[in-house]
Design a protein around this nucleic acid. Structure first.
Length: 594
RNA sequence: GGGGGUGUAGCUCAGUUGGUUAGAGCGCCUGCCUGUCACGCAGGAGGUCGCCGGUUCGAGCCCGGUCACUCCCGCCA
């Protein structure tokens, strides 16, 4: 017989009736009747009720066991009488009558109960992550994550992708997020950087002729955390393909996503073919490049309305004159919503830092009129024009935001979510995917007024390469794309620029001269000069995919050992101070903060 | 770096207008209980009300500061 167990805690059923068995696991729960004791024994696989009464000489000892003690139990499988069957348990038809037991791992008083549906503070959870991870929901999330990754590996392999590892210690790059740096002992004063993504390596893999690559790649970015963004590190399904166009990549990823989301979730997919929305269209209709398409509300640009003589909304008119834009969100048939609904939205917008949202509802008695605090500032003609632009009907309402393009997009995008929530318009049992395509190659930095890469400097510009007008860089679109699901940005990718001359040209627009590029992207640019295939790829975020599949709002719920918001690991106590010897070896001096 | 929220027993939380000895559930300890599966019943221990300072006859509650956690903005090619 096996030393620790003959079965796991999810195995036993009536088939095993009268068998002598050994189980090992954690004491999930005790129910002590004084002379009769039930113990729910738990392991990774499930739960088995064990029972013992005072005829057993170990009874008093068993009674005293702390929850979460690890025990080995020897006993016999007994059929439960009809009234005591627990149909919620897979092993609920039987119980194990305890003959003897042994403590394998004792347990101190718990800082947080394992058997409980209570929510705990995250600091406690992270400090005692090993206990937290025993709890059902998160335990299952982590198993789901493992299954998702296995699934990805097998699907990618089936498609002929090869999995490669790329370096963790690499060089710092000037573009993108802040790097995590690692000092070099052998090269005093020099630093490695942890990769923000294996971007250059995967392109080199294509240049090296491997045709199709993927990796479950760790990525490191020293940026502040969000609910859907771990500080420090996260994982991407990094992939790259040679001799492909945008559509080839879409096909691979779309198929993978659909089969994965069907396999691991019961929620409906909005469409078997993901809608493609251009960046500019997305910004106008949704105010963001990661729209939640479950939300039926769309936005309209009504800037022009506020240049009309017969509109007397002077605050907005004045702002529009100085270059501000007006965006509107229409809600269908909300004429009977109480004033508090509208004012609530307005108040919320002010909390979000906007100057507030103006609103009114379209009414018709003899004439069309607008009901609401600013309604009377609009002539009937202007109202008709608004209704035409926004396809609005009598009884619908409209919310306005006004501000500089960036600001108005931001607040109206938030308002779109907020209003949809308030009106309960979002179907939580659905996954709504889309592709956002046609990103601009460059954008203007609002502060410095300089042209910079808007996304990825290695992307291929769109159009006939001979005819691109480099004098209008802001008009150049790139073969650059994102996948968005339910308002969560899952990944971004691009067809890469594999032509060195073109690369130099584009970098020069962003302010890097040839020497700069050669210095900073030496490996890359050099490789492209020795016969590079056209290639492209994408990198869906694994953590966010699992987060959606597990129906979680926080990425730490699908991460085994996450850091807290201050990028600290409370369990391992990272980051930590190091010895002066270590510092000396690395030629590093700590500067005391004033 | 900035803004919001939270901080009271091991855990989750309540605590009125500032008023005597700060409460509940779970957990823990003691006792009773042979069919529970959130077992039940009786009793008990357990508190620097995050920390510092102020106002006040009196502060868990009001004010100022600070720290921690969290959400958001900035940042995230």
């Amino acid at each position: 017989m096996h030393k620790y167990r003959t079965h796991n805690c999810n195995d036993l059923s009536l088939v095993n009736k009268n068998e002598k068995v050994i189980l090992s696991g954690w004491i999930n729960k005790k129910r002590d009747h004084g002379n009769l004791l039930f113990i729910d024994l738990r392991d990774n696989y499930g739960l088995t009720q064990c029972v013992v009464d005072n005829n057993n000489k170990s009874f008093r000892e068993l009674e005293k066991l702390q929850l979460e003690t690890v025990v080995k139990i020897e006993g016999s499988v007994v059929e439960r009488i009809k009234d005591t069957i627990n149909s919620d348990l897979k092993t609920g038809q039987i119980e194990v009558k305890i003959l003897s037991f042994e403590i394998l791992g004792s347990c101190k008083e718990l800082p947080m109960p394992v058997f409980s549906d209570q929510e705990y503070g995250e600091d406690v959870r992270l400090k005692y992550r090993f206990l937290d991870l025993r709890r059902k929901k998160i335990h299952e999330n982590i198993i789901l994550r493992s299954q998702v990754i296995s699934f990805i590996r097998s699907e990618m392999s089936k498609l002929g992708f090869l999995e490669f590892q790329t370096p963790i210690l690499t060089s710092s790059s000037p573009e993108g997020a802040r790097d995590f740096l690692v000092p070099s002992r052998l090269n005093p004063g020099k630093f490695y950087a942890l990769p923000q993504a294996p971007q250059q390596f995967k392109q080199l893999i294509m240049v090296a002729g491997f045709d199709k690559y993927f990796q479950i790649a760790p990525c490191f970015r020293d940026e502040d955390a969000r609910a859907d963004r771990s500080p420090g590190e996260f994982y991407q399904l990094d992939l790259e393909m040679s001799f492909v166009e945008q559509e080839d990549i879409f096909k691979v990823v779309e198929n993978l996503m659909i089969s994965m989301f069907k396999k691991f979730s019961n929620k409906k997919l909005n469409s078997e073919k993901f809608p493609r929305i251009s960046y500019s269209e997305s910004m106008i209709k949704y105010g963001t490049d990661k729209p939640d398409l479950r939300n039926p509300l769309v936005m309209y640009d009504l800037t022009k309305i506020f240049t009309r003589e017969d509109v007397q909304f002077e605050i907005f008119k004045k702002l529009v004159k100085s270059g501000s834009k007006v965006r509107a969100i229409v809600t269908k048939n909300t004429k009977d919503k109480p004033r508090s609904f509208f004012d609530g939205i307005d108040k919320w917008a002010k909390q979000e830092g906007a100057s507030g949202l103006a609103y009114f509802t379209f009414e018709k008695n003899n004439n069309i009129s607008a009901k609401g605090p600013v309604g009377k500032l609009f002539s009937e003609e202007s109202l008709k024009e608004i209704m035409k632009i926004t396809s609005t009907q009598i009884g619908d309402s409209i919310f306005f935001a006004c501000g500089k393009t960036n600001d108005v997009e931001k607040i109206s995008a938030l308002a779109r979510d907020k209003i949809a929530q308030e009106l309960n318009l979002i179907n939580n049992d659905e996954f709504a995917f889309c592709w956002i395509v046609d990103y601009p190659m460059f954008e203007k930095d609002e502060l410095t007024k300089k042209i910079k890469f808007s996304h990825n400097p290695f992307s291929m510009p769109q159009g006939d390469l001979k005819n691109i007008d480099f004098n209008k860089p802001l008009d150049i679109k790139a073969y650059q794309y994102d996948i968005v699901c339910n308002g969560v940005e899952l990944s971004s990718g691009a067809i890469r620029n594999h032509i060195p001359e073109l690369m130099y040209k584009l970098f020069s627009i962003a302010g890097y001269d040839k020497k700069n590029v050669d210095e900073k992207f030496n490996g890359m640019i050099n490789a492209l000069s020795y016969g590079a295939p056209p290639h492209g790829g994408i990198a869906p975020g694994i953590d966010r995919i699992v987060m959606l599949l597990a129906n979680e709002k926080n990425i730490r719920e699908v991460t085994m050992f996450p850091m807290n918001q201050n990028a600290q690991d409370l369990l391992m106590k990272a980051p930590s101070e190091i010895t002066s010897e270590q510092l000396k070896e690395l030629n590093i001096k700590i500067v005391e903060k004033k």
